[in-house]
Amino acid sequence: MVSLSDYLILSSVIFCIGLVGIFVNRTNIITLLMCVELILAAVNTNFIAFSHFLGNEAGQIFVFFILTVAAAEVAIGLAILTLLFRVRGSIDVDVTNSLKG
C-alpha cells in the first residue's frame, strides 16, 4: 500500500522542480507560467491525498476551485503576454523594466 507520506513527498518534489524552473527560466515568461502550473499541480496533489486519506470531499472541492482560478490566471497571463509582445517586440523579462523595480 502507498502511504500518505509517499504522496506528500512526491508532491513536494514536484513543487521544488517547479521552483527550480522559476529560478532557471527567469527570462522566459511562458516557461515561468508553466512552472507556476506545475507548482499548482503539486499543491492540488497534496489536497487530494489528504482528502482521500481523511475521507473528506472538501479537499477535492478546493482543488476544483484552484483549477478554476488557475485557468483564469493562464488566460489573462497569456493575454498580457501577447500585449507585451505587441508593444515591445520581445517577451524577455529583462526588456520589460520600465517600472525600474
Partner: peptide
C-alpha cells in the same frame, strides 16, 4: 496519480481542461 487516489472527476477535468 489522482485516479490512484480515487479522485476520478478531478483527474478527467485536469486532462480535459488543462
Amino acid at each position: 496519480v489522482w485516479i490512484l487516489l480515487e479522485a476520478e472527476f478531478l483527474a478527467i477535468t485536469l486532462i480535459l481542461v488543462y
